[in-house]
Simulated assay, not measured.
Amino acid sequence: MPETHTYHVVVNHEEQYSVWAADRPLPLGWSREGTSGTREECLAHIAAVWTDMRPRSVRQVQE
């Protein structure tokens, strides 16, 4: 049976990504990244764009 739930890709201030159910309020500190779809579509998008798993603050110190 195909999935019928819609999800959003969300991102926090450290540029970490997650998938969030569209019918739930966003947790504090997270905002919509702009991508929506099935859970699998959102996870595929995250895999394509989140290539450096280090939090933003760690990347800035190490660069």
Rank of each mutant, 00 (worst) to 15 (best):
T38M: 05
S57N: 06
P27R: 15
E41F: 04
E40Y: 01
G37S: 04
V10S: 01
Y17Q: 04
P25N: 09
D23I: 00
E3C: 15
N12M: 04
E33N: 09
E40N: 04
L43G: 00
A44G: 08
M1C: 10
V61E: 10
T35Q: 13
A47Q: 10
M53G: 14
V49N: 01
V58K: 13
S57K: 00
E14T: 06
R56F: 09
H45V: 06
T4W: 03
V9N: 06
V10M: 00
V61T: 11
W30F: 15
R54I: 06
P25K: 12
E33A: 01
G37Q: 00
C42W: 07
P2C: 05
H5W: 14
Q16P: 03
E33I: 02
T51W: 00
A21T: 05
A21Y: 14
Q60W: 09
A48M: 07
D23V: 03
T35H: 12
V58T: 14
Q16L: 14
C42P: 07
H13T: 10
R56D: 08
W20T: 01
R56S: 06
E40F: 00
Y17P: 05
R56A: 11
R24Y: 08
H8W: 13
L28S: 14
M1L: 09
G34L: 02
A21E: 08
E63G: 04
P27Q: 10
R39A: 06
E15H: 11
G29D: 06
E14V: 07
W30E: 05
N12K: 07
D23P: 06
G37C: 00
S18Q: 12
V58L: 15
G34Q: 06
A47T: 06
A48N: 09
T6P: 04
E40R: 14
P25M: 08
M53V: 10
H5N: 15
R54M: 00
S31I: 12
G34W: 01
P2Q: 13
Y7K: 02
W50E: 13
G29S: 09
V10H: 06
V19T: 15
G34N: 00
Q16R: 13
P2S: 13
G37I: 00
G29M: 05
V10K: 07
E3S: 15
C42A: 11
I46C: 04
R32M: 05
A22K: 09
S18E: 11
A48F: 02
A44P: 02
V49W: 06
L28V: 13
T4P: 01
W20V: 03
P27E: 11
L28A: 15
Q62W: 14
A22P: 04
M1Y: 09
Q62H: 14
A21G: 04
